Amino acid sequence: MGMKYVAAYLMAVLAGKDSPTADDLKKILGSVESEFDEAIASKLVSELEGKTVHEVVKEGKEKIKAFGGGGGGGAAPAAGGAAPAAGKKEEKAAVVEEEEEEDVDFDLFG
């Protein structure tokens, strides 16, 4: 089922329709010159008949919780090669010098 039909259904609910019809979806999708399939819209409306959007969203959240979660996978390890000596790495970090700020007679808020 296309997400555009679900989005149109939710827009109709936000506009104040408790139970949008296929014609409501057709109006919304027609306003943005999108193709409309009566069979898909009718199927969506019939599946959501007698339910509120809040109930459907709550059920969906419960189903998603069953999948577990957490962030994505970890970062990929660096490509092969020998690790540099620790002493050299520390030397390079110490060599970095900070740039001095120049006094500029400029007041962003003045």
Rank of each mutant, 00 (worst) to 15 (best):
F67I: 00
M11H: 13
V104D: 12
E62D: 12
G60A: 08
A76G: 09
E102G: 01
V57P: 02
G16Q: 09
G16P: 15
G68D: 05
G81H: 11
E55T: 11
K4A: 12
A75H: 07
M11K: 14
T21I: 00
V96W: 07
A8M: 06
A79Q: 12
K43W: 03
A85C: 03
S19Q: 14
A39N: 11
F36A: 05
V57T: 10
A86T: 04
G68S: 02
E100I: 00
K43N: 13
A39M: 07
G110V: 05
E59M: 11
V53A: 15
G70Q: 07
G74D: 11
G72L: 07
V45A: 11
E55R: 12
L108T: 02
A93V: 08
E47C: 12
D23T: 09
L48V: 08
A85Q: 08
L25T: 08
D105W: 01
A66L: 07
F109V: 00
G72N: 06
G80F: 01
P20H: 07
E38P: 02
A41E: 03
G50P: 10
L48Y: 15
S34F: 00
V104R: 07
V32K: 13
L10I: 12
P20E: 06
E100S: 11
E47T: 11
S31N: 10
K43E: 15
D18T: 10
H54A: 14
V104P: 00
E38H: 09
V95Q: 13
H54C: 11
G2W: 13
A66H: 01
K61C: 05
P84L: 12
G16W: 05
D103T: 09
K89W: 05
S34Y: 03
G16V: 05
G74V: 06
T52K: 15
T52L: 06
A86E: 04
M3V: 06
G60H: 00
I40F: 10
P84K: 12
G81N: 14
A82M: 10
E49Y: 07
F109H: 08
L14M: 14
D105H: 05
A94E: 15
T21Y: 00
L108K: 06
E97K: 13
F67S: 00
V56D: 00
V45W: 13
E91V: 05
L10C: 15
G72I: 03
A7P: 00
A94L: 10
M3P: 01
P77D: 08
T21F: 00
K43C: 02
K92V: 09
T52G: 01
I64F: 08
H54G: 09
S19G: 04
D18V: 06
G50V: 04
Y9M: 03
E59D: 15
V104G: 02
K27N: 08
M1H: 15
L29T: 02
M11F: 13
K26I: 00
K58E: 13
E49C: 07
G80P: 14
A76P: 13
F36C: 05
A75P: 03
K89R: 11
F67Q: 01
A7E: 15
A8F: 06
G2Y: 14
M3N: 14
T52Y: 01
E55P: 01
D107Y: 02
E101R: 11
G30Q: 03
E49F: 07
K92A: 13
K89Y: 05
G50H: 08
V104Q: 05
K92G: 14
